[in-house]
Amino acid sequence: MIRVVLPAHLRTLAQINGEVELEVEGAVTQRSVLDALEARYPMLRGTIRDQVTKQRRPFVRFFACEQDLSHESPDTPLPPEVVTAKEPFLVVGAVAGGR
């Protein structure tokens, strides 16, 4: 089981309270976690990564275990603490001011 924390706007969109718990088959990577997340919550497609290229949206970042994983390959295995659900995988909206 993988724990995922989403930003408030995406929790509202997907009607999620608190963390998401996902079963991920095979290697636990950014790609496999996001695939599982979007399969369960199709309304999140396009909000975290591009629907065609699967690239991370520019103002979205990925953190785990106090590390910035935003620029890791989507196929790099996530840290063991995420795989064992000791730590969550964090989807974070970039701090970018506002208007």
Binding site: P7, H9, L13, M43, T47, F59, G93, A94, A96
Partner: peptide
Amino acid sequence: SSGWFGQLIQRSDDGGATWNP
């Protein structure tokens, strides 16, 4: 839409009481 999370389209079939992306 949002600069962070991109474009969504929402639809209501009951005059805005409920919505679905």
